[in-house]
């Protein structure tokens, strides 16, 4: 797969990342995110560039790039769809969603679906581990944004909207950007979408809503007797 060369702007930004830390090597993880943003995957050129900036060997950079699952050595789609198939989501229907998407997209795990005539964007598919949204199971991630409470039907509709180039929003987040744009945010370069989406999704508010209804709050600090710690009780 042909990739564009790392341009001067990217090389400058890679150095900028390294300079955020007391020791430059600490920048390697975000630097590799930026390589993915610039080139669509971890390229040999990107590995060499990081190694040169950090003054370590290319083998050391490769060792890191191959350890973490978010780094891809082959291209992914404009929209990388991750279906949680860890136990809870799997049981709640994640297995069925993943099977349906594989069947619908005619691909296996960690593959890119064929761009059909008329498609304006590509999608890729992967099964992922727990993404810390279990109260919204089954969960699908698109470019690492939450798509909560999915069904096989909603997931198929979503990937079709994405392929058609329609705007799709996270169920409690922003309008979806491309995978490469998301990787740039992970490298530490904000994209201005922070104010999109709500403060919290519905499930996150389940307990708070009950507390509001029933007038439950944490104790009033004024009413707490100034006892020594250790004497408090439930």
């Amino acid at each position: 797969m042909a990739t564009n060369q790392l341009d001067d702007k990217t090389l400058t930004e890679l150095r900028e990342i390294a300079a955020r830390y007391p020791e430059p090597r600490s920048g390697l993880l975000p630097m590799l995110h930026l390589v993915q943003s610039a080139q669509g995957r971890i390229t040999p050129e990107g590995i060499e560039a990081c190694a040169a900036i950090l003054d370590i060997s290319a083998a050391e950079v490769s060792g890191v790039a191959t350890f973490y699952t978010m780094y891809k050595r082959h291209g992914v789609g404009d929209y990388h769809v991750g279906v949680c198939t860890n136990t809870l989501c799997a049981v709640m229907g994640g297995d069925e969603i993943f099977a349906r998407l594989k069947d619908h997209l005619e691909i296996g795990n960690d593959e890119v679906a064929v761009k059909r005539q008329g498609d304006s964007r590509t999608v890729s598919l992967e099964h992922i581990e727990c993404n810390a949204a279990c109260d919204y199971a089954p969960v699908v991630m698109v470019n690492w944004e939450f798509m909560d409470n999915q069904t096989p039907e909603s997931a198929v509709q979503m990937v079709e909207s994405l392929r058609a180039g329609h705007e799709v929003s996270s169920t409690r987040g922003p309008r979806l950007c491309t995978w490469r744009e998301a990787e740039r945010v992970l490298a530490g370069f904000p994209d201005g979408r922070v104010d999109e989406g709500p403060t919290a999704g519905e499930a996150s508010l389940a307990g708070l809503r009950i507390a509001r209804e029933r007038g439950w709050t944490a104790p009033d600090p004024e009413q707490v007797p100034a006892v020594e710690a250790g004497e408090g009780e439930a």
Partner: peptide, 23 residues
């Protein structure tokens, strides 16, 4: 204040905590 936090919870497990129910 420490006493405020310690007024919640049990003898050796003080304070508030977020409980996540799923499934």
């Amino acid at each position: 204040g420490a006493a405020w936090f310690a007024s919640m919870g049990t003898e050796k497990s003080k304070g508030h905590g977020i409980f996540s129910l799923s499934g």
